[in-house]
Structure formats: C-alpha cells, structure tokens
C-alpha cells in the first residue's frame, strides 16, 4: 500500500459520497446518468465476487463492501426514491455500444479462462468506459451542476492516482498488471477534456456550461 493508492481509494470514496450527498440534499438526481451508475454497480459486482473467497486485508474487504453499498444505494435513489427527478430524456447513451465490445474483449484478452477471471476482466474494461453515458449526458444538455463536476473530478483524480500507484509498484515491487494499466490509461484519457473544463471554469467559480 503506497500513498498514491490510498489517496486514489479515498478520492474514489469521496466521489461516491459527493454524488449521494448531492442527490440526498437536493432530493433530486437531475443531471445524473442512471446508466453510468448501473454500469458502476455492475463493475463492482463482477469485480468483487472474490469478497468471500479471497481475503486480502480488513481494509480491502471493508472498502469493497462500502463501494458496493454506495453503488447500489445510488442506483436505488435514481431509479426508485427520486425517479421523478431523473432526467431520463437526456440519458440516452446506447449501452449495447459499450457492453458488446467489453464482453467480447474480456473473452479475448484475459489472464485465464475461468468464470471469476473473465468477470474480473469484464469489470476492468467496463469501468474504463462506464462514465461515458454521464459525459455524453453533459455534452447533450451542455451543463452540469457544480457538485456533479466535483464528483467527476474526484472520480477522474482516483484514476490518475492509480496510474501513479502502478508506476510506484512497478519501481518498488516489480509488479504490473497490464490489463488494469491499459484500461486505466484509457479511462484517465476520457477525463482529460473534463479536467480542462473543471480547472478553467469550475475552480474559477463559474458553472460548467458548454457553448
């Protein structure tokens, strides 16, 4: 465990809390893509199947449970509790465009052909593209609430910190996991455009709106 990894995990946790706080406080999930949140719930479900079979540490187990809970509570908020506020007309990204290639790739490029390993690989590939429905929604409506942009910032920061973690681990432990690294790089690239807008607009006190 290194400082990049722990800060990455905390940033990921903060992002999920921010999203829940936004929904809970405003009693609204306007501007949030339910499809992205379903994909994240699917990511955690398929990745953490080893929760009971492979014990790593108390930290690891607790974080997995918290991530799963956050993901499912968020989906529940969007599709049940506050579904009247859900902006379904703008959440129109076609999930099959993500799911079909991701399922195909997880069968083609993985570490071994076992159900848990293929599902783990699926979760890694899916996570790298899961935010696309959310980014698509923002580009469609042309704006995002400031708290939603904070959520996206910390979600992207988590990924960037994981890249630093992998460089560190490669240097110190000679550890590398090429599937995670390639997917992580792809995922981080998707946030670059958003990071630019975040720094040039949101941090200067302006609302994120696209021309």
């Amino acid at each position: 465990m290194n400082v990049f990894r722990i800060l990455g995990d905390l940033s990921h946790l903060l992002a999920m809390f921010l999203l829940l706080v936004k929904i809970w406080r405003s009693k609204s999930c306007a501007g949030i893509s339910g499809k992205s949140q379903i994909l994240f719930a699917l990511v955690f479900t398929t990745r953490y199947l080893d929760l009971f079979s492979n014990f790593i540490s108390i930290y690891n187990t607790v974080m997995k449970v918290v991530f799963l809970l956050c993901a499912y509570v968020t989906v529940y908020m969007i599709y049940w509790k506050f579904r009247k506020t859900f902006d379904i007309e703008n959440d129109t990204f076609r999930l099959e465009f993500l799911l079909v290639p991701v399922i195909g790739l997880s069968f083609l490029v993985n570490y071994s052909y076992t159900p848990t390993e293929v599902l783990w690989t699926f979760s890694i590939y899916l996570e790298s593209v899961a935010i696309l429905p959310q980014l698509f929604m923002i580009s469609k409506t042309g704006e995002a609430e400031t708290i939603t942009t904070h959520y996206l910032f910390f979600l992207g920061l988590y990924r960037a910190l994981y890249l630093a973690n992998w460089i560190w681990r490669y240097q110190t432990e000679n550890f590398y996991d090429q599937i995670s690294v390639v997917s992580g790089v792809v995922q981080t690239i998707f946030y670059c455009d958003f990071f630019y807008l975040y720094v040039t607009k949101v941090l200067k006190g302006k609302k994120l709106s696209l021309p």
Binding site: R5, D9, H12, R47, D50, N54, I56, N60, M63, K64, F67, Y111, S112, E117, W120, Y162, N165, E173, N174, F175, D177, S180
Partner: peptide, 10 residues
C-alpha cells in the same frame, strides 16, 4: 513471483 491473479487493488 507476484501473483497477479490475486487482484489486491480495488
């Protein structure tokens, strides 16, 4: 050798 299949990251 490190066992990559352990997947110790979140």
């Amino acid at each position: 050798e490190y066992n990559v299949h352990q997947h110790d990251e979140l």
